[in-house]
């Protein structure tokens, strides 16, 4: 872990991927179709849970200030926490990978993508609910309203990430592995 954090190549990759995430966020696209989760999961998968959490937190922290929706405000800690979970899951998943049989692996990753996206949406919706509570809304109503009104976005988010994770993860780790020559991929 210590080696990884001192590796300039990894630090550079972290910067490049963060910039790429922001570029995607700022480019015209359907709302909630994003690649940040995929990059975070991949980063965790390649470099372990610690760097996964670090990358997820960092990218969401930066995104909180440069998002096309404006400053994230009170939702920022929730976004950071949500994406940190995705990075952590990427690192943990690597430990339990059975093999790189393309079909099974892609399906597993797609399901994980759906689950992690749902989890991320839950966490950030709680953040939205928290901002409602700050302005005086009843807590249960705030949670219910935030979850309910987040649903259309969540649907797009989950289903698009099923496709993004299922299709792109396998080729992505292959290329990154090739470029970085990461050892002990599995």
């Amino acid at each position: 872990m210590q080696n990884n954090t001192k590796n300039p190549l990894i630090i550079a990759l972290m910067g490049v991927l963060t910039a790429l995430c922001l570029a995607v966020q700022l480019s015209p696209r359907p709302p909630n179709v994003e690649f940040t989760s995929l990059f975070t999961f991949t980063f965790g998968f390649l470099f372990g849970p610690f760097l996964g959490v670090l990358f997820g937190s960092f990218v969401m922290f930066v995104n909180g200030f440069f998002s096309p929706w404006g400053f994230a405000g009170p939702n920022l800690p929730f976004q950071i926490a949500g994406m940190a979970i995705v990075g952590l899951a990427g690192g943990l998943y690597k430990r339990y990978v059975k093999g790189y049989n393309a079909a099974g692996f892609c399906i597993e990753v797609a399901v994980l993508g759906a689950f992690l996206t749902e989890l991320y949406d839950l966490v950030t919706n709680f953040g939205v609910a928290f901002s409602y509570m700050i302005v005086g809304m009843n807590p249960s109503l705030a949670v219910f309203t935030a979850l309910a009104y987040g649903t259309p976005f969540s649907l797009v988010h989950v289903f698009s990430n099923i496709a993004v994770f299922g299709i792109m993860f396998f080729p992505l780790i292959g290329s990154l592995n090739h470029v970085l020559r990461v050892e002990n991929l599995g």
Binding site: F144, A148, P152
Partner: peptide, 8 residues
């Protein structure tokens, strides 16, 4: 997703 949709 289904329960959120119902809530929505």
């Amino acid at each position: 997703l289904t329960s959120s949709l119902a809530g929505y």
